[in-house]
Design a protein around this nucleic acid. Structure first.
Lengths: 208, 208
DNA sequence: CGGCATCCGTGACGATACTG
DNA sequence: CAGTATCGTCACGGATGCCG
């Protein structure tokens, strides 16, 4: 276990970077915002990270109170990594980075990996934490716990209970939203994004 | 010039990290939020950064549109580095990191460097962008352009014009504010932070 | 097969010295 | 003052092996 490298500056931003400033760390946090993940899943959704770096980061993050390691109950016993409450508080950092990075996104390069739940971040920002929403894309579907105080912030697959609204959109629309070229209300109004459900949130979105 | 290393993920947060995720980059941004700086000043206020890494980062940041390099008019001709508008938009990223890092700050370690203008970040957050404020600490004084759309976000030395309020506090109070143990209104109410000036902002702060 | 640990080549980093 | 040059070290990325 390497003693943590520090910038040695009495400044809270540099202290944050001491903990989450290493390569891959914040992307691991982004993955774990989708809920508990096994080592192999993390490795599969983070192309390019080497096995030893991933293992080392997960150890460091556990030591620093950002993640915990837990054994799943049998059947299917395995270790999963998940964010602590402190780790989930990194969401605003990821969101600020994501907002700033929108103009850098541009067109998808052939070398770029894509995962369906990466579209959760821009949608989460657009929804500003107003309930449980299920989202369907060609790449797969996921759900958003917008405004959840505990537990995962979003997750793969269908919502764990009846969602407050369901969104259906195609990849082009998801990309335009991610790039900030299209707003949520504009996407709904032009029919590129369909809202179903009869809860108050679904109605509010359709009327917006 | 090295071709930029990328995570190659179609996600705006990872694109942001492609640009500002390298070691030292965001701390250079934090320094430049205080206004134009010469190479030597940056090197002096970032203890531990090596000269070649600093030079390399400044080149990369200029290439990526985060900073510009400008020659000061004589006398005192020298090159200064400053943030572009795009670079200044990184303030929310620094603020989110700073907010998250507050619990990590703890007591000052003997190896920690301190600079007066690093106290600008927590104060800027507390003031929420409500005018031009001059701050005096034992370590030195600086000013905040809270809510400035163009130009530096804060700066060393006195305010360039008559400020909307002046704050005087000691190091312990500044540290408590930076650690999040003390709120701005609480600091004012307990007399640990003195507000002078007769503008509306100064009055509002005294009455809060 | 999932979850690492080990090894190795390459590149990034940090310290010092040196130059226009 | 503003970097470039050099060099040792460490972090990273890729591959492979081990062990439950």
């Amino acid at each position: 276990m390497s003693p943590r490298r520090s910038y040695d500056q009495y400044c809270s931003a540099s202290r944050a970077l001491d903990v989450v400033g290493d390569r891959w760390t914040l992307l691991i946090v982004r993955e774990l915002l989708a809920g508990p993940r096994r080592y192999t899943d993390l490795h599969a959704d983070l192309p390019g990270v080497s096995t030893d770096v991933l293992a080392s980061r997960l150890k460091d993050m556990e030591r620093d109170g950002v993640t915990t390691r837990r054994r799943l109950p049998p059947p299917g016993a395995a270790y999963v990594y998940e964010l602590t409450a402190r780790g989930r508080q990194l969401l605003p950092v990821i969101q600020a980075l994501g907002a700033w990075g929108e103009p850098e996104l541009g067109d998808r390069r052939p070398t770029d990996a894509v995962r369906a739940h990466w579209f959760a971040l821009p949608l989460l920002r657009a929804l500003e934490g107003r309930g449980l929403v299920e989202v369907r894309l060609e790449e797969g579907h996921f759900h958003l716990h917008a405004g959840a105080e505990d537990g995962p912030v979003y997750g793969d697959g269908p919502a764990p209970r009846e969602p407050d609204a369901r969104l259906v959109l195609d990849t082009g629309t998801g990309t335009a939203l991610a790039r900030g070229e299209l707003g949520l209300v504009e996407a709904i109004r032009t029919g590129r994004l369909t809202v179903t459900g009869d809860g108050p949130l679904a109605k509010e979105l359709r009327e917006a």
